[in-house]
């Protein structure tokens, strides 16, 4: 026992020293990222939380008021409208982006020249800036000389004011967003589909499995992790709707298309009420965190079962 201990002790020390050295090297490797992460994400997060507890404007003069900004937000009908608009927008965009992205990826997952061309075509909208995208769609949607208005007029129908109708403004922005953003989910799904082993399909064909059977039993289970990534990425992106609403409708009519980020921008930079804007930002952060984590844990739960 003693001899054992005597021989084991130096060996354990060496192992411990080696692992300590490895940890130090590892830490050195990740240090640049950790520093940037802490300075640009962690610090602003806590700084924002602290700011949200103050009555403050852009030019200082802050005063600690506890949770009053949060209480004020929950009494503010415009903020509550912005929250419900944001949730509605996420519902309008995330499922279609995921399903259409998957559909396009399945359709274009082959080596033909046409598929390559169409993949490039569908992805091309993603490289445009929000200004260009919204200008294009404004020209399609406006009732005075817009593309849809002209088509409707040519068949004797009245033009529809998509961007000034309280019921149509947000769906119009959602449609624009889907057109703009569809490239990323399609590419992610395509990458995942190309990782699925070919021999699984060959085996399935030998077993006389049909296309639907292969889709349900091989393809979809194989790309479930990518599907989760797509949903989480799109949730995070679409909760942060800003440019499209700012340029196309300015949040109107009657705040019907006002998203939370535009509300935060208006309150913070136009009214200088930066403490109030920080409180709204923290609520948005919490909502994105809950939505992304719920999706993540639900998917993990299903997997473990």
């Amino acid at each position: 026992m003693d001899s054992c201990e005597q021989t084991a002790a130096p060996s354990t020390r060496r192992t411990w020293a080696a692992s300590k050295s490895e940890a130090r090297s590892g830490l050195l490797f990740v240090a640049p990222y950790l520093i940037v992460f802490a300075v640009l994400l962690i610090y602003p997060l806590f700084s924002g939380i602290w700011l949200s507890l103050h009555k403050a404007d852009l030019f200082g003069g802050s005063q600690f008021i506890g949770a009053q900004n949060y209480a004020r937000l929950f009494r503010d009908p415009v903020f509550l409208t912005a929250v419900s608009n944001t949730l509605y927008f996420v519902l309008l965009t995330v499922p279609p982006l995921t399903l259409i992205g998957l559909g396009l990826a399945l359709a274009l997952n082959n080596r033909s020249r046409w598929s390559a061309l169409l993949r490039g075509l569908f992805f091309s909208s993603s490289v445009l800036s929000v200004t260009i995208v919204t200008l294009i769609w404004r020209m399609v949607l406006i009732p005075d000389g817009g593309l849809i208005a002209n088509l409707l007029t040519s068949i004797g129908r009245s033009p529809v004011a998509f961007l000034s109708d309280a019921h149509l403004a947000l769906p119009a922005i959602a449609f624009t967003t889907i057109w703009w953003c569809i490239g990323l989910p399609m590419m992610l799904f395509l990458a995942a589909l190309q990782q699925v082993p070919r021999d699984l399909y060959e085996a399935a064909r030998l077993d006389n499995a049909g296309r639907w059977r292969m889709l349900a039993s091989i393809t979809l289970p194989s790309i479930r992790h990518t599907a989760l990534v797509v949903v989480v990425i799109e949730l995070i992106l679409q909760f942060q709707l800003f440019g499209q609403a700012q340029i196309m409708t300015l949040g109107g009519p009657n705040n019907a298309s006002l998203p939370m980020v535009l509300f935060i921008y208006q309150v913070g930079f136009q009214r200088w009420d930066i403490g109030y804007a920080a409180a709204a930002s923290e609520i948005l952060f919490g909502m994105i965190l809950i939505a992304a984590m719920t999706q993540y844990f639900a998917a993990r739960g299903r997997e473990s079962r």
Binding site: S164, G252, P253, N254, N255, Q270
Partner: peptide, 14 residues
Amino acid sequence: QIISEEMESAITGQ
């Protein structure tokens, strides 16, 4: 901006 928004909603019957 606030007044214009509210006027617009009243004038358009919203």
